[in-house]
């Protein structure tokens, strides 16, 4: 029905309905309380309306996150569709917040809503951006860390869309590994 409405308005429907979440680190509250659903959208036009309406990631205060996930998947490891998965992680140096961060995040969002991972787009769960004083992070989460072919394809296409040089390597970590180790010791499962 949503599809018909969208099309009747002349809007361009997306393959998936997406939910944008916002996390603000308030130590006095429970983690779940700090996580808020902003809104959901399922057309190209509504994506841009939302994107142009919200604060750019580079303007968020430290400790905040945006997460964009397929409707029905919550932006946390524990979600049944994330649990066996992992993430392609982009770690940025501090000065990149003012040069690349917003551009990288927009490319990430477009890869998701445009289903730009060919036959493997169904492997994608969502993407997260963490704004941290020690260096910001952007990641695309996929649902099955053992699905080597899909994970590698997504990593290669993602790297291309970000315009990263061949000299720059990005790593994929399984959530199960990230959850149990301190970030510097987390095992990297794949590299592209």
């Amino acid at each position: 029905q949503e599809l018909l409405v969208a099309e009747s308005l002349g809007k361009h429907p997306l393959q998936n309905r997406w939910a944008l979440w916002f996390f603000k680190n308030d130590k006095s509250k429970m983690w779940q309380e700090n996580l808020r659903l902003i809104t959901k959208f399922s057309t190209v036009e509504d994506f841009w309306a939302l994107y142009s309406h919200i604060q750019p990631a580079s303007k968020l205060s430290s400790g905040c996150d945006y997460s964009l996930f397929k409707d029905g998947i919550e932006p946390m490891w524990e979600d049944s569709q994330n649990k066996r998965g992992g993430r392609w992680l982009i770690t940025l140096a501090k000065q990149q917040r003012h040069t690349e961060l917003d551009r990288f995040w927009l490319e990430t969002l477009m890869c998701l809503v445009g289903e730009m991972f060919d036959d493997y787009s169904d492997e994608v769960c969502g993407a997260v951006i963490n704004i941290r004083a020690k260096g910001d992070k952007i990641a695309i989460w996929t649902r099955e860390a053992e699905n080597r072919e899909g994970v590698i394809h997504i990593g290669r296409v993602y790297k291309e869309h970000l315009g990263l040089s061949q000299k720059v390597a990005i790593g994929y970590q399984a959530h199960a590994d990230t959850a149990t180790k301190s970030s510097s010791l987390t095992k990297t499962k794949f590299v592209v």
């Binding site: 361009h12 429907p13 997306l14 393959q15 190209v44 036009e45 994506f47 841009w48 309306a49 994107y51 142009s52 490319e107 477009m110 809503v113 445009g114 289903e115 730009m116 787009s121 869309h161």
Partner: peptide
């Protein structure tokens, strides 16, 4: 058929609101 949009197509809509 999966609804896919490439980067250029999506960017074509980015500033549609400014013109509206």
């Amino acid at each position: 058929e999966k609804k896919r949009y490439d980067r250029e197509f999506l960017l074509g809509f980015q500033f549609i609101f400014a013109s509206m």
